[in-house]
């Protein structure tokens, strides 16, 4: 299998191109800009479409347009830009269009800085824009997964006609690791039953999210809820590490989950029965699986670079109020020793 050392942001473009994505619309923002750069470099070589948009809003609305035409579209940004994109994402969700959006999260709030943080969790996982909707959210933790999850996100986005978000961070975006390149390339087929392409076959189609009739809009919302339930039922993904006899379960995603994993090994060497539960999908959240661990009697510590945004979901899933939190802010990664200290405290 051909492999190269590749940067995480580049791996997103590799995944997108092998997944049959042929439209990228972006706006510069650190630490996501390399996705824009790589798209500008590679897309035109194979006739795929690249536009540097005038703003984050314009970029996501261009994505909305190309998605409405049934194409595979990628958008990417970081926190401040993601905030601006929320209007468009709400429209994409409301109109039930497939679109993949990558968030290379940075430290906030406000302008913050360009270091990593996982504080966009709520924005990505709970909807983020106006109205009741959900994004499918995948959380890679390696360069390989930056590529593989982008491909998977396109599959899910089209399977459910829904926005799918890759929630990563500045470290995953900028780090270089080996990447095994995809073995197949998707040749996408446009679905003429809903796309609006400017041709005879799709002339009667309409992409919209407005419905002035209260009953109809309620029915639309209920349909969306039913879709999200199907996603919850079928698409939960997670990883477990040394969980079988674990008394303390670290729950962690993305880059933090790698540090948590090394903390588990270190804790085991000290005789602490630790394990790692890593949600791969943040929506749908692996609630049932965590609940089963709680029923078994495990205690939980959420390891995340935010103020316990994911911890709230762990509490809801497990019914445990007493879920520990190890977190850092401001661009600082969580240290293995900080996790160890917390585990020693509760062991």
């Amino acid at each position: 299998m051909p492999a190269q050392l590749v940067e995480g942001n580049t791996a997103v473009i590799v995944g997108a191109m092998y997944a049959g994505c042929d439209c990228f619309f972006g706006y510069p923002i650190t630490p996501a800009s390399e996705i824009l750069h790589e798209a500008s470099r590679h897309f035109p070589k194979v006739g795929r479409k690249f536009v540097q948009a005038e703003s984050e809003e314009a970029a996501i609305n261009m994505a909305y347009g190309a998605a409405a035409a049934g194409h595979r579209v990628l958008a990417a940004s970081s926190g401040p830009g993601m905030s601006l994109k929320q209007e468009g994402i709400s429209y994409i969700a409301g109109a039930e269009l497939p679109c993949v959006i990558v968030d290379i999260a940075r430290a906030g709030p406000g302008l913050g800085n360009i270091g990593p943080e996982q504080s966009d969790y709520n924005q990505a996982v709970k909807g983020g824009g106006h109205g009741c909707y959900r994004n499918i959210v995948l959380a890679p933790n390696s360069v390989q997964e930056m590529c593989d999850f982008t491909i998977k996100a396109f599959d899910l986005a089209f399977k459910y006609r829904n926005p799918a978000v890759i929630l990563a961070d500045g470290v995953l975006g900028h780090m270089v690791e080996p990447l095994n390149f995809p073995q197949t390339a998707v040749e996408p087929v446009i679905d003429p039953t809903w796309a609006v392409c400017g041709n005879r076959e799709t002339r009667g189609n309409l992409v919209t999210s407005i419905d002035l009739d209260f009953k109809e809009l309620e029915a639309h919302n209920l349909n969306l809820q039913a879709k999200y339930d199907r996603i919850r039922e079928n698409e939960v993904d997670y990883e477990e590490y040394r969980i079988d006899d674990a008394e303390i379960v670290l729950v962690s995603y993305g880059i933090s989950s790698r540090i948590a994993k090394s903390a588990v090994d270190a804790a085991r060497r000290e005789g602490i029965r630790a394990g790692l539960f890593r949600p791969v999908t943040l929506f749908p959240f692996p609630a049932e699986e965590l609940k089963a661990l709680a029923e078994r009697g495990s205690g939980f510590i959420s390891v995340e670079m935010s103020d316990g945004q994911m911890r709230e979901d762990i509490r809801l899933a497990t019914g445990c109020r007493d879920v520990g939190l190890v977190s850092r802010y401001g661009g600082n990664l969580i240290g293995r020793d900080e996790i160890m200290e917390k585990m020693r405290e509760v062991a």
């Binding site: 314009a58 347009g65 035409a69 429209y91 992409v207």
Partner: peptide, 25 residues
């Protein structure tokens, strides 16, 4: 004809997206 409903002010961006995706549209 075909129709796509857009957010306030964003129509030219949405049209750009469709135009780039579908050259004959």
């Amino acid at each position: 004809c075909g129709h796509v409903q857009t957010a306030h002010g964003r129509a030219p961006a949405v049209a750009t997206g469709i135009s780039r995706a579908e050259d004959d549209a």
